[in-house]
Nucleic acid binder design. Sequence first.
DNA 1: TCACATAATCAACAGATTGTTGTTTATGTA
DNA 2: TACATAAACAACAATCTGTTGATTATGTGA
Lengths: 203, 203
Amino acid sequence: MKKKTDLRVIRTKKMIIEAFVALSKTKEYEEITIQEIADAAMINRATFYAHFKDKQDLYDQILEVSIKAFAEILDTEKLLSGKTVKLKKMERMLTKIFQVIQENKPFFSSISDGRATIQFRQKLIELLYDKYEEIFKNLKITENDIEVPIDFIVQYMTSIFLGTVHWLVNYENNFNPDHMARLVIKLVGNGHLTVLGIEIDRD
Amino acid sequence: MKKKTDLRVIRTKKMIIEAFVALSKTKEYEEITIQEIADAAMINRATFYAHFKDKQDLYDQILEVSIKAFAEILDTEKLLSGKTVKLKKMERMLTKIFQVIQENKPFFSSISDGRATIQFRQKLIELLYDKYEEIFKNLKITENDIEVPIDFIVQYMTSIFLGTVHWLVNYENNFNPDHMARLVIKLVGNGHLTVLGIEIDRD
DNA sequence: TCACATAATCAACAGATTGTTGTTTATGTA
DNA sequence: TACATAAACAACAATCTGTTGATTATGTGA
């Protein structure tokens, strides 16, 4: 099970991914040809096909990696204690996440285009669903006698997160991860959670 | 200036757009070829090029039309009276917008894919910027001595709107436009606006 | 109703791009 | 250093794009 991967394979894959990310900054996904990627990565076009099924496959694999970083952070702490949401923990988690994004700003900027958004969103939703369900499952939120489904809450919260990320990587700003986290917590914590009737623990 | 457009032109354009929207439901944007669009629209491929520069051009024009519907609604009412936001007006506007979306659900569903999202977002932001600026320009919002720029607020609010729309058209639900508007107003109005220190008029 | 401007069809074109294959060369590994 | 295998290379059919010139069909306005 522990066969070491050939150095050449690792090197080539790395170069392909870097080439693609670099190209993403200059042109749209659809405009990038395999030949261009191969040229930029300084490999033969056929070699590309030895590693990736097609352009979409390359894209998926890149996305997969970046999502994993988030998943690891999210798995570390429990946000819920009884029926109370731990805001401080939430803030810590957010700070870490914004840190990862900040450190890889050019990367996230290049992959957070239109194409990524929908897939990114979908993967994030899958990732966040359990977290949110944990918080909201015992809560019946109603609006004019119509129950507000968890689906909606998750979409809503994910949108906020995505919007924040989008702004962070695409606009000039001097916000550090810490400030971002605090700001989002302030908006979501003081705003939404109380509106939705969630108990809050600020320590 | 008032030359009437040839009926054939209108008919053909309509068929191309309808064909494209229909195809969007079965496959991804990149997978759709001009030939397929032409086949579905029952016109010659060359005719397509007589009306649209390329696939992207077609897409842009479709998006343009759908944005206009929103723009018209947004232009009707002033949201701000002095320093106070008129929630009721906001709710009326939102209701109308959700109505438009609801009525054209399959359409918005098919165009609100990853591709659209980023362009849709951009156009919405341009559209909403003035509205938001009107509300927030005289307000200095600070977080730990760092001023929160209008950019951020607009991104944040636009994200919420987009997320809501995304949920509305892509998930099974029995929410009518009225309920959607009320729910969003409740979340945004009671939550964010108060956090941001905006005065609110609920009538 | 009819002439005509113009829209749509059709066939054919070069140029790009894709994905694959068989052969040869280069190189990391043990 | 020998060998397994990764990468380079060249050539391939297949598909799609965008354009053009000639021909046919059809709305429109007189």
